Simulated assay, not measured.
Amino acid sequence: MAYGLDNLPYASVVGTDGRRRAVVRFGDDVLDLTPLDSTLFADGTLDAFLGAGRQAWADVRGRAQETIEAGDTALTPLTTVRPVLGFAVADYVDFYASIHHATNAGRIFRPHGDALAPNWTVVPVGYHGRAGTVVASGTPVVRPTGQLDATTFAPTRALDFEAELGFVVGTPSTGAVGVADADEHVFGVCLLDDWSARDVQRFETQPLGPFLGKSFATSVSPWITPLAALQDARFPSVQTPAPADHLLDTGRHRLGIELTVRVNDTVLCRSSTTDLHWTYAQFVAHLTSNGAPLRTGDLLGSGTVSGPEPGSLGCLLEMTRNGAETVSLDDGGVRTWLEDGDEVVITGSAGPITLGEVRGRVAAG
């Protein structure tokens, strides 16, 4: 079963009565979590549950498994409810963790310089996004207008997707969190598409990082797969050269999640998070190393997940070499960048564990 007892991802759903409920998914049904803990799930969201900490996560997961196995509580068909984003996004930070993506982008933008900046293998590079523009899967992505060059303010002509994994923070912190303690704070993962207007990004990223070229929309899957379901998809970190001492990761924080990207039903990418250079535990350690706290609902993006092969590139920027080439679709069409009406669907899995999908269709601006 794609969503068996070893999975049980979390979301909020809205029923035909308009009521919002926090649930776990089992097969093609959902289990209402309110009877399991009327305090944690009273408002139909996951917010209080995420902030309750690791022991509460384990207790609720165990009770949900027992309840489903016992069969003494009715399940609700997924077809009768609408999944929605189950938590309030506190802060959104997007990292740049794939050495293949970073190298490819560096070669595109700095053809006569070093592909990787000197800091890239020392610390996880990232930028702060806009939490208010994180939207649930299925929300239309309106083509943004921006400054394309010094004289042109117009709808982007270079709209792109980025196939990513998102990490959802549960337990807050009051200061620095070490790599070894990251699992006390990170609840689970979701699929993420960090939409990008490459022409806007190119003009504005002088000298600072991404801003309006990325802040118009970030799509996430409504289902959050808990780290507890991914124990068999965890591996030791492999890093050369070794990072700064406070970022050394000797645990099993490298996840093996396979991503597939489709544009209008054409598979354009198959990549794996095993190829990421930096781990989510290092994201947490670096993010908090200056004393910045974690908040319940913080969302940490992995950055584009790309591999070493042509078929494993996680965005059109890499596939088309910044618009210099095209990719072919199964319907006979070709693309350099996304067109209005195009739908991007990213799916993910880790062995028998299915992460679901995140999808978005481009609408004219």
Rank of each mutant, 00 (worst) to 15 (best):
Gly213Lys: 00
Cys269Met: 09
Val362Leu: 10
Gly333Pro: 05
Ser221Cys: 13
Gly209Ser: 11
Asn264Arg: 04
Val123Asn: 15
Thr288Ala: 01
Val135Ser: 02
Gly301Gln: 03
Leu248Arg: 15
Val24Phe: 01
Trp337Arg: 06
Ala292Tyr: 11
Thr156Asn: 08
Thr320Arg: 04
Arg63Asp: 14
Thr274Val: 02
Leu33Thr: 06
His101Val: 03
Asp331Tyr: 01
Thr76Asp: 07
His112Ile: 10
Gln206Tyr: 13
Gly146Leu: 00
Phe109Ile: 00
Leu300Gln: 02
Leu259Pro: 03
Leu148Ala: 03
Glu66Leu: 14
Val186Gln: 09
Phe235Lys: 11
Ile353Trp: 09
Ile257Asp: 08
Val30Ser: 10
Leu116Pro: 12
Thr73His: 01
Gly301Glu: 02
Pro77Cys: 08
Leu313Glu: 13
Gly301Ala: 00
Glu69Ser: 13
Val263Lys: 00
Arg157Thr: 15
Val169Gly: 07
Arg20Trp: 13
Leu78Trp: 01
Val179Pro: 08
Leu230Thr: 04
Thr260His: 06
Pro293Ile: 04
Arg270Pro: 00
Leu75Thr: 03
Leu338Asp: 10
Thr133Ala: 11
Leu299Gly: 05
His277Arg: 08
Arg270His: 03
Gly323Arg: 06
Ala363Tyr: 13
Ala180Gly: 14
Val220Ser: 07
Pro118Tyr: 03
Ala182Cys: 01
Thr79Gln: 12
Gly170Thr: 09
Val358Trp: 06
Gly256Asp: 13
Gly86Met: 09
Gly301Phe: 11
Val261Trp: 12
Asp249Ile: 04
Arg234Ile: 10
Phe109Cys: 01
Ile224Trp: 06
Val135Phe: 00
Gly71Asn: 10
Arg262Trp: 05
Val267Pro: 02
Gln231Ser: 14
Thr80Phe: 07
Leu287Pro: 05
Ala136Arg: 14
Ala105Cys: 15
His128Asp: 15
Ala176Ile: 10
Ser137Lys: 08
Gly365Asn: 07
Ala115Arg: 05
Asp47Asn: 06
Asp91Gln: 06
Ser219Lys: 04
Tyr127Arg: 08
Gln239Trp: 05
Ala48Arg: 13
Arg19Ala: 14
Ala97Gln: 04
Asp245Met: 10
Asp275Leu: 08
Ala2Arg: 07
Thr103Cys: 08
Leu247Glu: 12
Ala163Gln: 08
Glu357Met: 04
Gln201Asn: 11
Ile346Glu: 03
Ala105Lys: 15
Gly360Asp: 05
Asp28Trp: 08
Ser272Thr: 12
Asp94Asn: 04
Val122Met: 14
Thr347Ile: 09
Gly15Cys: 02
Arg130Pro: 01
Pro243Tyr: 00
Gln231Trp: 14
Ala229Asp: 07
Gly188Cys: 11
Arg198Trp: 07
Ala324Phe: 13
Ala154Lys: 14
Ser306Arg: 01
Leu31Gly: 09
Gly301Ser: 07
Ser137Cys: 09
Leu46Ile: 12
Asn7Arg: 00
Leu192Ser: 10
Phe153Glu: 12
Ser306Thr: 00
Ile224Thr: 11
Val179Thr: 07
Ala242Thr: 05
Thr79Tyr: 08
Leu208Arg: 15
Ala97Thr: 14
Met319Val: 03
Ala163Leu: 04
Asp245His: 13
Gly86Ala: 02
Thr320Cys: 03
Gln65Arg: 15
Pro83His: 07
Leu227Gly: 06
Arg295Tyr: 08
Pro124Thr: 04
Ser349Tyr: 13
Pro83Leu: 07
Val169Asn: 01
Val189Gln: 08
Gly251Ile: 02
Leu31Ile: 00
His101Gly: 00
Pro35Glu: 05
